[in-house]
Design a binder for these strands. Structure first.
Length: 486
RNA sequence: UCCCCUGUAGCUCAGUCGGUAGAGCAGGUGGCUGUUAACCACCCUGUCGGCGGUUCAAAUCCGUCCGGGGGAGCCA
């Protein structure tokens, strides 16, 4: 590198920004589509989705991922010089097209690019390019995950996922939450949230043993057994006890051998945690947060949402709008069970007080009883985690699950047990060693305060918003049991 | 992990009672006055998932292994 001889001042910054604009920010197809026809020369860069040719004219649809629809490039074969290039332009080829925007003669678009010159940057031979100009199944597209973002559906998913991501941060930032990076590698084993992937540098062909014959983790990299995080909640709580309101947003790993359309081994989770907050505040945040991210997508991705409504899940955009406008229903677990027991004959697994709610019960509550999202609270302590606050009845805890139609549980949260004696007793009854949680219990020893939080499966939220049936199609490269390609 | 379904052309699928396979789309060539999943005509395309068995003969029946999908459990 040459020595920098300028000072990093505002002139330099604006120079750099100008460079970025020229290199990266100019002339996206979504912007070109909104411009008025003009004799000014413009350039469009992108990938060919389809080519249609007749005697006098050739049409190319160019897409650069900035919008669902592409820009139609029109080539007048009577005046276009470089006809040879057209035979090499096929679906998937990358082009730089220069010309000017004109009113479209055809019906489906306002403007199109009348091409003066076309530069073929990268060919995509039609006999080997895996994406054809026809509809493919999502299962097939998973096998070519490195190319599937170039399809309408996966492109729309990618744009929505991006908007949801940004909305997560803006919601919390606008509401005084600090973003906290909780660790990816964790040595606190017994969080109870699921099987961990082990992290080790031990030689698996020659594992060191203790005198008792067990694995000698003191020889391992961290000196003890370590794994990938299954939740950032416990660490998140420690920062809530200093910054009041925090959130985490990062990858989470579960080594469960579950094979369903709503589970991944590697997924993204959002975990806000609020100090000086009870279950009521927790539920209020959960509801306003969900509505905020839904509204962000409705506002920013109308074209993609129309697409999902038409081709993926009929009416999903309207459903989302209705959810935004409707207050969430509230039921205690006891009320929910009473309601479900009336229809026990219709369930494969009848409900009774104390049993966990099955998928069929969650669907019944959201789709039949409440006709929309519902928050179920105050579950029996036996079916919930140790850290949830015990109610005065001694039987239930201050847990809350947000259930939505079609998907079931999208958020799980609770007010945390802030009383040291109650929490310790609870751990002991569950055969958890309080010594393993000494730092977590310190939060109850020093300046303990009522606090609450929840976890939202980010990918499930994207699944709910888009109506995509399988969670493996809302994340770029899904990881699940026996599946970690690309 | 359990239960069910499935694997045939590049893709999506059909293939009857066991007789070595055929449609649509994609691709190629030609045609077409501006197309929109363009259209019309013609042409090309196969280790029938792998291995083993039954049979004169297996895509088809049996066994087994592998891949894919759906449901359940677990959860986010």
């Amino acid at each position: 590198m040459t020595k920098l001889n300028h000072t990093w001042n505002s002139t330099a910054i604006s120079h750099a920004h100008g460079m970025v604009r020229r290199l990266l920010m100019s002339l996206r197809i979504s912007q070109l589509l909104k411009q008025a026809p003009s004799s000014a020369t413009v350039t469009a860069e992108g990938w060919v989705r389809t080519k249609r040719e007749s005697k006098n004219v050739c049409f190319l649809e160019l897409n650069d991922g900035s919008s669902l629809v592409g820009l139609q490039i029109v080539v007048d074969l009577n005046s276009f010089e470089n006809k040879e290039i057209l035979t090499r332009i096929t679906t998937g080829a990358s082009l730089v097209c220069t010309g000017f925007l004109v009113n479209s003669v055809g019906g489906d678009q306002e403007v199109e690019l009348k091409a003066q010159s076309i530069e073929l940057i990268g060919e995509a031979p039609a006999d080997t390019y895996p994406l054809q100009k026809k509809r493919h199944t999502l299962e097939y597209l998973r096998e070519i995950a490195h190319l599937r973002a170039r399809t309408n559906t996966m492109g729309a998913v990618a744009r929505v996922r991006n908007v949801v991501s940004y909305a997560v941060h803006s919601y919390f930032q606008e509401n005084g939450f600090a973003y906290v990076h909780t660790p990816i590698i964790s040595t606190s084993d017994a969080e109870g949230a699921g099987e961990m992937f082990q992290v080790t540098t031990l030689d698996l062909a020659n594992i060191p043993r203790t005198e008792q014959g067990t694995i000698d983790y003191s020889k391992d990299f961290f000196g003890k057994k370590a794994g990938l995080t299954v939740s950032g909640q416990l660490q998140g709580e420690t920062y809530a006890m200093a910054l009041k309101n925090i959130y985490t947003f990062g990858p989470t790993f579960r080594a469960e051998n579950s094979n369903t359309k709503r589970h991944l081994s590697e997924f993204w989770m959002i975990e806000p945690e609020m100090a000086f907050c009870t279950l009521e505040g927790d539920m209020a945040v959960a509801e306003s947060f969900l509505k905020y991210i839904f509204k962000a997508v409705v506002d920013k991705c109308p074209e993609d949402m129309d697409f999902f409504s038409k081709f993926v899940e009929k009416g999903v955009a309207a459903t989302l709008q209705k959810v935004i406008e409707t207050p969430f229903a509230h039921l205690t677990y006891t009320e929910a069970v009473a309601e479900l027991e009336k229809h026990n004959s219709t369930f494969e697994y009848p409900v009774h007080w104390g049993s966990d709610l099955q998928t069929e019960h969650e669907r019944f509550l959201t789709e039949q009883v409440c006709n929309g999202p519902v928050i179920v609270t105050d579950y029996p302590k036996e079916i919930k985690a140790f850290y949830m606050k015990l109610n005065d009845d001694g039987k239930t805890v201050r847990a809350m699950d947000v259930l939505v139609p079609r998907l079931g549980e999208i958020i799980g949260g609770s007010e945390r047990e802030s009383r040291l004696d109650v929490l310790t007793a609870r751990m002991q009854s569950l055969k958890l060693d309080p010594a393993d949680y000494w730092w977590y219990l310190d939060l109850r020893r020093f300046g303990s305060v009522p606090h609450a939080g929840f976890g939202l499966g980010f990918d499930r939220a994207v699944q709910y918003i888009t109506g995509m049936q399988n969670i493996r199609d809302v994340i770029p490269y899904p990881r699940a049991a026996k599946q970690a390609d690309f």
